[in-house]
């Protein structure tokens, strides 16, 4: 274990811990755009700088390992000035359109700019030419003007998803993130939206017709209802409707989803949903009340009650454990048969 002091607080952490993480243990959030535990270190945003006693340079805490007796200051005057300049430089090339940006309220640039008093009127002027949005993907688009080049999207795509559809193009100020050949399909993109999940700004946003503000939504943690991996996700709810799915990093999926989990949620609020029971009358399915439907089923149950072998039940690999339990319980307890099976073989 290593002892060090951060902002006057002593802390003991494991060897090889970074100063950024050690600070986090103390509840001190050091700003960063490009750091993510799951990804290789890019150390490029330079926001996580700290002052270390005995060193003149400002050091990035995301890759700075703790040393015994280290004295770190994360909020010194020097750090705050550098941070404000850094954010002001980014702001100078960033569209001033938070009022209509879908990321507003969850944007790290917005949060840090607030924290470090960045002026709305840019104090710097950087020569930057607008780069067109890439909207080739069906589910999300890339807006290079809002990109701060933290590279998390590029790294998650290659290091975590193992696809590598995204990369940097050009260099210097003209650098931007795009798909190979500027087209998602050519690049082998699998539309999993992991890039969107990690983007700290509005550069990667889902395409959506829903208008909502991020402070007007509820997020409900749940388990994905597609394949058997059981990815953990958050359903983002606005006015009783699912408007987005966010990845959750606590599950076995470690914040990764696939195209179905992330984007194929429209069925939930879809207009084709059955909203009332239907009962067949004169050969046609017509709307009915629950009572009517139950009565009809009960009638047939009573009709065949004595012949338990004439009952069969198709249970469901899509329903919950509790529901599957009840289904087989109903068959075994009520219908007195073991004729229950489900689509495990399909």
């Amino acid at each position: 274990m290593i002892k060090l002091i951060i902002n006057g607080n002593q802390i003991e952490v494991e060897e090889n811990t970074t100063v950024l993480k050690a600070a986090r243990e103390l509840g001190i959030e050091i700003p960063t755009f490009c750091d993510d535990d799951r990804l290789s270190k890019q150390t490029s945003c330079r926001l996580c700088i700290v002052e270390v006693e005995g060193t003149d340079k400002l050091l990035t805490s995301c890759n700075l390992e703790v040393k015994e007796g280290m004295v770190v200051n994360t909020e010194s005057e020097k750090v705050r000035i550098a941070l404000k300049i850094n954010l002001s430089l980014i702001w100078a090339g960033h569209p001033n359109d938070c009022m209509k940006c879908g990321k507003s309220g969850e944007c790290k640039l917005q949060d840090y700019s607030f924290e470090y008093d960045v002026d709305a009127e840019p104090i710097y002027s950087v020569r930057k030419e607008a780069i067109a949005k890439n909207a080739t993907n069906h589910f999300f688009e890339i807006d290079p003007d809002k990109c701060i080049l933290c590279g998390k999207c590029v790294r998650i795509c290659s290091e975590q998803v193992g696809v590598g559809a995204l990369g940097f193009k050009n260099r210097g100020q003209e650098t931007y993130v795009s798909f190979g050949n500027d087209n998602f399909e050519d690049a082998g993109c699998v539309s999993c939206g992991s890039c969107v999940s990690v983007c700290p700004t509005g550069a990667l946003l889902n395409k959506t017709a829903d208008k909502y503000r991020n402070w007007d939504v509820d997020k409900v943690r749940t388990t994905c209802s597609y394949c058997g991996v059981g990815c953990q996700m958050e359903l983002v709810v606005h006015k009783g409707k699912i408007v987005r799915v966010d990845a959750n990093e606590e599950g076995s999926n470690r914040g990764l989803l696939c195209v179905k989990g992330k984007y194929a949620f429209n069925f939930i609020n879809h207009r084709d949903r059955l909203t009332t029971p239907l009962v067949r009358k004169n050969g046609k399915l017509v709307e009915a009340t629950w009572e009517e439907a139950y009565a009809k089923i009960n009638q047939k149950y009573l009709e065949f009650k004595g012949e338990s072998n004439s009952f069969v039940g198709f249970s469901s690999a899509r329903c919950t454990n509790e529901e599957n339990y009840l289904f087989q319980k109903m068959f075994r307890q009520v219908f007195k048969t073991n004729n229950i099976d489900h689509c495990a073989r399909l």
């Binding site: 690999a317 329903c319 454990n321 339990y325 075994r332 099976d341 495990a344």
Partner: peptide, 20 residues
């Protein structure tokens, strides 16, 4: 690798003709 979200659970829950 189980193909459906709860195919494991449906089996666990006795959704099979021979299993409780």
């Amino acid at each position: 690798l189980r193909g459906q979200n709860n195919v494991q659970g449906a089996c666990d829950m006795g959704g099979l003709p021979n299993n409780l």
